[in-house]
Amino acid sequence: MDGRRSVGSILLARGYINEQALDGALTAQHNTNEPLLKILIDQGFINDDIKAQVLAEQWHMPFVDVMAEKVEADVLALVDQERAKRYGFVAFKREEGVVSIALSDPTNIELMDYLLATYGRETKFFVAPKNAIYGAIEKYYVVGNSIKEASSEAKAEIIAESGEEVSIEQLREMGQDAPVIRLVNTIITQAIVEHASDIHVEPQKDHLRIRYRIDGILQEKQNLPRNIQAGVLSRIKIMSNMDIAERRKPQDGRISLRIENKAIDFRVSSLPTIYGEKIVMRILDKSSAMVPLENLGFLNDTLTLFNNVISQPYGMIVISGPTGAGKTTTLYSALNRLNTPGKNIVTVEDPVEYQMDGLNQV
């Protein structure tokens, strides 16, 4: 025996699931032969963070929030970017000759052997969620490379030093430059990986600030060079079907993308400021809104009360809270619970954020 506890016992001991959920997942595993943790994620009982914490405990490895680590350039040079992304690992620290590596799957013995052979026996392993590892790779490799590439090829600023405005043709050309396209795509992809609800693109006096709203809190992610501001803003406006010639009035737009086999919409708004147009992109991931009410964090008594209230034939429920608190998710989860062929449901929304089959959304 190697002393490792079963995944199920760890989940129960930590209170992540109950016996009923575990029994259901074990039954499904018997039929599909899929890993238990994958089944529980698919069923909505746990997420990637919990999976990583359970694996860390099972394999007696420390858990690490790799996105919070400040990675130095010499450590980044140790890792092959493509291989790191393919196998889900990243080196994030080196102290006294010991290289610290975060990986998402400590059960992959072949990967462990490769890492030991590549980086030597002086290696310390940590477990991190796969999305956090991908986020770190995007943050330290892809974003950095895209910024350098876009900055080196930037053709002009939106307002020339002389005060003359760049022509519409120049703006459109900058928004369609390949390096700028890759940079904007990377910023969006990283936001999805980090489960952000909003992307804020904010012109400042000498740089373009990128912030993500994660768990309701805005977090600064990148400061882009001022000389690529015009290209980045133009690219987002082109994607959103906004008028790139209009820079003095607020505008609204929408983007529909498919990222990692998921359909994701973005509600986009622009606002003129003294340093250029601030753009906010609200990320509308339909799968995140279809969370079962049981998984929203209600206490049992509160959940019972809420289910009783939404089942009433008439009345009003008021849900309030700050940005990112979960108002929209709670409302759509309630609608999803009520959405049956025997009910006529009409919504009045401004705007309609998530389109749901079976509803009459106005």
Rank of each mutant, 00 (worst) to 15 (best):
Ser151Lys: 11
Tyr314Val: 14
Pro322Ala: 14
Arg94Gly: 04
Ile50Lys: 02
Trp59Ala: 15
Val184His: 07
Arg172Ser: 03
Gln229His: 06
Val180Thr: 08
Ser152Trp: 06
Gln20His: 12
Leu11Ile: 05
Val79Asp: 01
Leu171Gly: 03
Met1His: 14
Pro250Arg: 05
Gly135Met: 06
Leu76Val: 12
Asp80Glu: 10
Gln43Ile: 08
Ala150Pro: 08
Gly163Glu: 05
Pro179Ile: 10
Lys130Glu: 09
Arg337Tyr: 14
Ala117Met: 13
Asn33Lys: 15
Leu171Pro: 00
Ile345Gly: 01
Leu171Asp: 00
Asn227Met: 05
Phe306Trp: 15
Ala13Met: 13
Pro341Gly: 01
Glu353Gln: 03
Leu293Gln: 02
Ile259Met: 04
Gln43Cys: 05
Phe125Ile: 12
Gly231Asp: 00
Asp215Trp: 07
Ser162Asp: 07
Tyr16Thr: 10
Gly253Ala: 10
Ile147Lys: 00
Ala84Met: 01
Ile238Ala: 00
Ser256Ala: 10
Ser162Thr: 14
Asn31Asp: 12
Ile50Gly: 02
Thr32Tyr: 06
Glu260Gly: 07
Val280Ala: 15
Thr189His: 13
Ile168Asn: 02
Tyr140Glu: 12
Thr304Ala: 15
Ile181Trp: 00
Arg5Gln: 13
Val180Phe: 01
Leu284Trp: 09
Gln361Asp: 02
Tyr87Phe: 15
Ala84Val: 02
Ser288Gln: 07
Gln251Glu: 10
Val7Thr: 14
Asp2Phe: 14
Gly88Asn: 02
Arg14Asp: 12
Ala91Gln: 00
Ile310Pro: 06
Leu183Arg: 06
Gln176Asn: 15
His195Ser: 12
Ile192Trp: 03
Lys286Pro: 06
Ala334Thr: 07
Ile158Arg: 01
Arg86Ala: 15
Leu271Asp: 07
Thr32Ile: 03
Tyr114Asp: 09
Lys286Asn: 13
Tyr141Cys: 12
Arg83Ile: 14
Lys327Ser: 08
Arg248Thr: 12
Val280Pro: 11
Tyr134Gln: 14
Gly321Pro: 02
Lys155Tyr: 07
Gly326Pro: 08
Gln222Gly: 05
Leu116Gly: 01
Phe89Pro: 08
Gln58Trp: 03
Ala77His: 06
Asn108Met: 03
Asp301Gly: 05
Ile188His: 02
Lys262Ala: 09
Gly44Pro: 09
Trp59Glu: 11
Ile41Lys: 04
Glu153Ile: 15
Tyr119Asn: 06
Pro62Met: 15
Thr107Cys: 01
Asp198Cys: 11
Lys237Trp: 00
Arg121Glu: 12
Phe45Ala: 09
Arg226Gln: 12
Glu19Asn: 10
Gln58Asn: 07
Lys70Pro: 12
Phe126Gly: 13
Asn47Leu: 02
Gly88Ile: 06
Ile192Tyr: 07
Ile50Gln: 07
Ser100Ile: 03
Gly326Lys: 08
Lys221Cys: 09
Ile228Cys: 01
Gly253Asn: 06
Val75Glu: 03
Ala245Arg: 00
Val268Arg: 10
Pro179Val: 04
Val99Asp: 01
Asn185Gly: 01
Lys51Pro: 01
Ser240Lys: 10
Gln361Asn: 03
Val75Trp: 02
Leu305Ser: 13
Ser270Arg: 02
Gly326Cys: 05
Leu76Glu: 07
Gln229Arg: 09
Ile274Trp: 10
Asn145Ser: 13
Lys38Asn: 11
Gln222Arg: 14
Ala73Glu: 15
Ile236Arg: 04
Ile101Val: 06
Thr186Lys: 13
Ile274Thr: 14
